[in-house]
Design a protein around this nucleic acid. Sequence first.
DNA 1: TGTAAAAATGCAAACGATTGCAATTGGTAT
DNA 2: ATACCAATTGCAATCGTTTGCATTTTTACA
Lengths: 341, 341
Amino acid sequence: MKNNKKLNLNDLAELAGVSTSTVSRALSDNPIIKKETRVRIQALAEQHNFSINTAASRLRTQKTNVVAVILNLIDHTEQSISDPFLLKIVADLNQALNSKGYDLLLSNSFMATDNWANYFINSQRADGLIVVGQGKSDEKVQEVAATGVPMVVWGDPLRDSSYPTVGSNNRLGGELATEHLLHGGCKNILFLGDPEHMEMTGRYLGYQDALAKNARAFDPTFTVAIDITSRAAYEKIGELILSRGLFFDGIVACSDMVALGAIRALKERYIGIPNDVAVVGFDDILMAELSYPSLTTIKQNTLRASQIMVDKLIAQLNGQKVGSSVVDIELVTRQSSKHNV
Amino acid sequence: MKNNKKLNLNDLAELAGVSTSTVSRALSDNPIIKKETRVRIQALAEQHNFSINTAASRLRTQKTNVVAVILNLIDHTEQSISDPFLLKIVADLNQALNSKGYDLLLSNSFMATDNWANYFINSQRADGLIVVGQGKSDEKVQEVAATGVPMVVWGDPLRDSSYPTVGSNNRLGGELATEHLLHGGCKNILFLGDPEHMEMTGRYLGYQDALAKNARAFDPTFTVAIDITSRAAYEKIGELILSRGLFFDGIVACSDMVALGAIRALKERYIGIPNDVAVVGFDDILMAELSYPSLTTIKQNTLRASQIMVDKLIAQLNGQKVGSSVVDIELVTRQSSKHNV
DNA sequence: TGTAAAAATGCAAACGATTGCAATTGGTAT
DNA sequence: ATACCAATTGCAATCGTTTGCATTTTTACA
């Protein structure tokens, strides 16, 4: 059990009385090796709890079975690193990757440097990349895509891009959220978020769609551009009420965290939710269900999205070309909005 | 810029008109190579954006510069994977590791299998392990520790263990939390959590300490053992009130998520916080500040803890023996508790 | 029993970087 | 010019697996 030195294929071969190559093939269950030899060697390996040296294996096969997941936080604040939504995606990606035999190399600090693709791919640290988030500009991502590195991006799949993107139908989500508020009787609905952020742009367009479809005027002063953090939302809503009074009765927030920040600002001022102001979020993080009032939101199916991303990446590793995919979203109605009017 | 094949040290050597070994040494800035040769080769490498093949390098040096971070979720429910606190630690660990030149290999699904140490270490996927969470039993972790694998564990550092542990002073935290409620005038304080969970045991003892120091009787029926999830807390508090009425006026929750679940159950019944029931959480996740009422809690310094864990791990890789470390905690008073009585 | 085909195994050359040691270069003092 | 030492550089073995090809063993059939 406890040998002083790790054993390798050679040692195992000696123990089994066969050649190294036979052991190698037996362990990968190569049918060219006689069945009984295979099971015998596999048992032997098990018994000595042998495991293959991946460094050597990777060198020889030129394949790592590792995928680097890069959190694209270029223009996010520190706060957003701990955004539950981002981290939920990481957890889901991990599951999806593991189930396909890949390991997950995490990085949240490499987007800043300009040669991350190099760092991970050329150096043979990983076979492919999954980038989480497009940010305000996907310039860097496009550059990397142009080099032909296997890559999938979590972002807005409806937008034209030179790389495969997986994400929610943000525009539809924005529309559903807004429509839900309109149906609930809201007359003056804020859009709270950053329309320039690529994933938020669609939501913003959806917001405008809903207004148009319901013959409501679109008033740019109801667009409140903020950093996508709960703190920014909290502060901005406070300011707005101070300077302009309670001129709105609904909020379409571009994320749950933003919605929760806004709600806090409202509650501190004893503004009723949903009666004075109704709120819809986006993401459906755990806290959405848990907050009080619970948060109506557009649910993003991260688990499904993660599986799709992994499948697409693996397809690329196998030389196939893949396109973008839209993952369904769903309006989850809870207490922060009125339902029947 | 865009060669059809990745170049290696040999190619670079040819380009530079020197030998492979000289290039290797030049790139690692080995002073044995003449300064001008070094800079010339480094520039050349830069220009061809060359990067070393880590597979080969790892094989040769027997070192990976990778640390595996394992989320110990054996007995957690699915919900807790997305616990903001856990994931905050991962983010902080990532920063700490990157700053020391290590990459982070994430795993949340390997604790279940019994040979994870094997998987990561013997196979040379990583140089060391960081295990996040001790769970209800650290048997598996102890086994691994016994094999001498370089490892650090996030958990309760005050508990005796055969491996170096980094974590908060849970006992003190439990005491501070409870004392804070007592000072606020609470007479009947629940402990809400799972005393058997290793990290929670200390908090539970601290709760008892505070009662004793303040000459309050410890009543076991005020210990509410639940899974460490907000949902469990929410449901349990509902049940308790239904069956026993509002027999308590304070809650020491073993985590913020648990506290938030409890608060939701209370608010749904229009129970005033903190006037009817005061609540203290543990962790200080983002939502603690953001919820309404905001949550008084015991803040754990995960950033500092992460740095310490990484330092300890690296020390082990250098052959040093290291012990456990306690990270300071801090009571953060917010709206969910009364302050001056 | 002989022979061809099929099945099973072994040989040996990669993969690309690192490093102890040997070899070369340059400089300095005789 | 010679010898010697230091400063540079190059040689070649090594890390452990994988795999095309050669070789041996087994099986099937005449």
